[in-house]
Design a protein around this nucleic acid. Sequence first.
DNA 1: AGTCATATGTGTACACTGTACGCATCTATG
DNA 2: CATAGATGCGTACAGTGTACACATATGACT
Lengths: 194, 194
Amino acid sequence: MTRDTILAAARTVLDREGVLGLTVRKVAARAKLSPMAMYRHFVDKSALLDALMDDGLATWGKIVSSISAQDPIAWLEELIEAYLDFALTKPHRFDAAFMLPAPSARQFPDDFAVGRSPVMAMIILRIDQAKSSGWFGDKPALDVALSLAALAQGLVSMHRANRFSNEAQFKTIYRTALRHCLESYSVRPLRRER
Amino acid sequence: MTRDTILAAARTVLDREGVLGLTVRKVAARAKLSPMAMYRHFVDKSALLDALMDDGLATWGKIVSSISAQDPIAWLEELIEAYLDFALTKPHRFDAAFMLPAPSARQFPDDFAVGRSPVMAMIILRIDQAKSSGWFGDKPALDVALSLAALAQGLVSMHRANRFSNEAQFKTIYRTALRHCLESYSVRPLRRER
DNA sequence: AGTCATATGTGTACACTGTACGCATCTATG
DNA sequence: CATAGATGCGTACAGTGTACACATATGACT
């Protein structure tokens, strides 16, 4: 379908020029279409961006599917590393998937909200597996998964905004923080004393 | 100074139209200047956005300064709540301060990198205070502060991207996750939950 | 006072953006 | 072959950031 041609072209432009540099005309040119032809396949530029987001999430999904570790905890550790790698080696794809240029009007169907996306489902599955071996106490798997995801996303956002003085520092902090987060859920629930 | 007039106008436009709706011409109109006059005070539109970011961080800084709790842990809890409130009641300011529309080229001086901003300094101060009463064990205060900040930012980003099915759900998850994060660093006397 | 350098503001112009509209051309079905 | 729908295109327009050259205001020094 032409739609896929356009998406492929859009991916290329995205990778080269970033979200900001992505322009309807550039994508059209690369897809060998007139600019207006784009609008037969996407109502909007923002619809194109949304598609690119789905595309990025799908790639990320494939990466997650390919994590091979058997042990659920090892699997989660690889996941953490894979996310870091994805963010660093494909920054523009990452932006499109996780850092929309501005809050779009897109409404996710309830079934696709955080915690119901395919990737989240995989993560939750592993957490539940680990639970049956005694990890994570009675914390809801969704809470654990969301904490990991949000922490990772927050740190990467900061990095993408140049808020770490260098990449090495960022990586160290990322690994430390995520490891801590993972471990912090891996005990029976404890209550703080004041 | 005219610069401040422009910034005031920009704030208004930002609040009404959001980061995406903010346009050099609109700001100029509101400041009763010709569009080109803007360029005597800001080299770029992106310089204006940067200034708006500093502005947002400054207001956030004032909010943080005004947290009154004495006990450092209570202070941190209020901080968490204040951040949530800031994000929900001033979403566009929040965007400008924490979610730049796209990774800008802005380089932060080393002294202003994450962990050295004024707000971070305040947070770290409280964490250190808590440490001297035995909290947080030997975890570097920066690690604790960054984890809290990144987790909060990540969750809010997700919310701003409509990834939670409703605001109430988001708030619950935010509070749960941040409380957990805070507690997870608090190695002080811990007691089993019944 | 008058001069003059500097700071500040403006009007016009340009290249580039997203995209509305109407028309042309393919494609598939009768 | 005819015809209807899907797909593509050329033109046009309003809105964007901003370069450039010119106008004016300001204030310091004679």
